[in-house]
Amino acid sequence: MKSIYLDVLIVLNIYVNFFLLRATARFTHTPLKTSRCVVSAVIGSVFSLTILLPLSNFFAVLAIKLIAAAVIVAAAFGIADKRQTLKLILYFYIVNFVFAGVIMVLYLTFKPSFMAFNNSYFYVDFSLISLVVFTAVGYFAVTAVRYFMDKGCDTSHHFKVIIRYQSDIFSVDALADTGNSLVDSFSGKPVIICPSESFKRFEEVYDEITAENAVNLYENYGIRLIPYSTIGNSGLIAVFSPDEIIITDEETGKKFKAEALIGINPKDTPAIFNPKILC
């Protein structure tokens, strides 16, 4: 192919970046607003212009890809939590690498006249309808894979959630329930709902957990308030970020390290977590 049209290149990569971000969000169970996904995809499309650069150094190309991944992920998901951000960058880079690998194989195998590949970016000169169909099929495939992975999560077992927070260690009986879909929109982490009686260190502030005291709660106890909604009920729930969470399957003995927030439930019930945390 002798010519590369910049408008086609930009539009193509906006679509591809949108798909890659959605795939990353799907695999990590991280919420992603459509508006942020679109903006991030547009920002990422700018990096596709490096296809025009005469780069031959592998490390230079790798550095550009790493920088691009970090910028795109930060724009899409934010950088509230460093560990979560690094995890998202890793997943985004893996998805990107696999996708680019497939395109590279097609390019080297068939050498199509309508495709160009350089600096790990590709250019395909085809119709917009074909592009939409291609993206939809790809996202459907990723969704199907994630669905079957989640389906393999066994929710019938009994679990125990072990929480380490500063000098304290809490152990709470827990149930896996898909009904708990609560996610903190700020950090992107799921929330494990635990009974308040498990956390004796917070007893003195239970009566002070109100929206008016939100700043004081966070500064003195590391507690934040986030909105929740259930059938016929909604409000604010107190959450905190522990140093470590281990979920143990009481029947198999398997242990899972979880990245989540702990929500404080005033009712005396077992802890409830979404089984997707285990997958």
Rank of each mutant, 00 (worst) to 15 (best):
Q84G: 06
S3Q: 14
E219D: 15
F92C: 04
P31R: 09
I231H: 05
V105A: 12
I129E: 10
I246D: 03
P270F: 10
Y218P: 02
A176F: 01
C279M: 15
L49A: 10
V132L: 15
L9C: 07
Y165W: 04
E208D: 15
T50F: 14
L62I: 14
G222I: 07
C194V: 07
N265M: 05
I277L: 15
P227T: 11
N233T: 07
F126I: 15
T34W: 06
H157Q: 11
L12M: 15
S3A: 13
G253D: 05
F97N: 05
I223N: 09
K2L: 13
F199G: 09
I277E: 07
N180S: 04
L52W: 01
Y221V: 04
L106M: 13
L53T: 07
L49F: 12
S198H: 04
Y147C: 04
N13G: 05
K257D: 01
S187E: 07
A238T: 12
A76N: 08
A271M: 03
F27H: 02
L62H: 02
I192R: 00
L278E: 14
G263Y: 06
I67T: 14
S196K: 03
A116K: 12
F92D: 08
L49T: 14
N96S: 15
F117K: 05
D154E: 14
V61E: 06
A70D: 01
A25V: 01
V172T: 03
P195W: 02
G152C: 03
F27P: 00
V105R: 00
P31A: 12
D150V: 02
I89Y: 05
P266T: 03
L12V: 03
F117G: 08
V71T: 14
P227S: 12
A70S: 11
F18G: 05
L108N: 10
A70Y: 06
P266F: 00
F59M: 10
A76R: 02
L175Q: 06
L106K: 03
F114S: 13
A76I: 09
V38G: 09
L12I: 03
C194G: 11
I103F: 07
S120F: 12
V11F: 00
D249P: 05
D184G: 10
S45A: 15
S113I: 09
L52M: 13
S167L: 07
Q84Y: 00
L66R: 04
A25G: 09
F148W: 03
S35K: 13
Y91A: 10
V215K: 08
K160H: 01
I223Q: 10
S113A: 13
I129H: 04
T24F: 01
F240V: 06
K254N: 10
C37P: 05
V73C: 08
F273E: 10
I245D: 13
S56N: 13
I245R: 05
K151S: 08
F134Q: 08
I129F: 09
C279Q: 13
V183K: 07
Y123W: 09
V215L: 10
M1F: 06
F199H: 10
G152H: 03
T85G: 02
I231L: 15
M115I: 11
A141R: 01
Y91L: 14
N96P: 06
A74P: 00
A68K: 02
T269C: 01
P266E: 01
V71E: 09
G188A: 01
A176C: 01
D125G: 03
